[in-house]
């Protein structure tokens, strides 16, 4: 039973990613998110890759368009039986930044807003510099959700930490609480606000973004619901990201679509989590930046000037 479900999950992830380029028709629509009803028979929809499309209304089943409250409700619960994990292989990251680009497109972010940020790191004075993509760590003991006064940011059963930007009051306590600087704020109207006007809010993509509220990496929870890998994972050309389900002990590489055992991967490569001494229990694992076959370009920015 367990085995079967593992295989089916892995297959689902692999297949849908493989087909991502050519998806059309119903599989695209099921991942859509309703936009205000346009005139006549067509309707504007937002796909989980951040595309606005116009389609015939007749093609849609009502179930494909959950209402806001329905969306918020299921968004709070999460996907039953899952425990999502990410593994980032630092030895592969060449600073291509495709993850950052894909993410900003998907989540309606301005160029300076990062759900995922590729940092140039150097641990000590004489150690080798390396690139470190840094999404939200989806901590199992998240300091950010602890401090939220209105329960606008919360931890789901499947391990994902989400935000309800219909509820957030913009106090920014969670930014202060997060030691990984993972959170961004909508200081102004979000990018392309007019274009997204009238789109029903999807809590699992945090789109449309709202002025005066918080945002951060969500492991592309909307795409996971559709059985796809997160945007950053799929966008990486260098095989940096592995993503999957800890319950099934399987992770899939976003570039090669290879699936492997999560526990073996982190054991064989001496994986670690960021600042584990803080007790946040991240769900993002890093494989050390050893044996890099490419030079580090550019200069390390001064960390704390």
């Amino acid at each position: 039973m367990e085995n079967k479900s593992r295989r089916s999950f892995v297959k689902k992830l692999g297949v849908s990613v493989g087909a991502a380029g050519l998806v059309g028709g119903s599989s695209l629509l099921s991942s859509c998110n309703q936009v205000e009803t346009a005139s006549g028979d067509t309707i504007k929809l937002l796909t989980s890759s951040g595309e606005l499309v116009e389609v015939n209304k007749a093609q849609l089943k009502p179930a494909d368009m959950p209402s806001l409250t329905e969306n918020q409700k299921r968004g709070r619960k999460g996907l039953p039986g899952r425990k999502f994990v990410m593994v980032i292989d630092l030895s592969k990251c060449r600073n291509a930044r495709e993850c950052m680009k894909g993410c900003q497109k998907h989540h309606q972010l301005r160029p300076e807003q990062h759900h995922i940020n590729v940092l140039q790191m150097q641990d000590a004075e004489h150690t080798a510099p390396y690139y470190m993509p840094k999404p939200c760590q989806h901590c199992d003991n998240p300091p950010c959700t602890k401090v939220c006064p209105v329960n606008a940011t919360f931890k789901r059963e499947d391990g994902i930490v989400l935000i309800d930007n219909e509820r957030c009051i913009g106090c920014r306590f969670c930014i202060a609480a997060c030691p990984y600087s993972a959170r961004v704020f909508n200081w102004f109207e979000p990018r392309d606000a007019e274009k997204y006007e009238g789109v029903t809010y999807n809590i699992e993509a945090n789109v449309p973004q709202k002025k005066g509220t918080i945002s951060k990496c969500l492991f592309s929870a909307d795409r996971l619901r559709d059985g796809k890998l997160p945007t950053c994972v799929s966008s990486c050309p260098n095989g940096v990201y592995w993503f999957g389900d800890q319950n099934e002990d399987a992770v899939t590489n976003g570039t090669t679509h290879e699936t492997t055992s999560f526990s073996k991967l982190i054991k064989d490569n001496a994986a670690y989590t960021l600042m584990e001494e803080l007790g946040t229990k991240p769900r993002v694992y890093y494989l050390p930046p050893k044996d890099r076959a490419f030079p580090f370009q550019g200069e390390i920015e001064d960390h704390h000037s």
Binding site: K146, V147, C148, P149, V150, N151, A152, R167, C168, I169, G170, C171, R172, F173, F185, N186, K211, G212, T213, I214
Partner: peptide, 26 residues
């Protein structure tokens, strides 16, 4: 005045989470 969404101030009472120091402060 520091809040991003002062219009949602009432959420503090509607959805107040007692584990947050902000609620203690209020």
């Amino acid at each position: 005045m520091d809040m991003g969404r002062p219009d949602r101030f009432l959420n503090v009472f509607l959805h107040g989470r007692f584990a947050s120091p902000i609620i203690w402060d209020v």
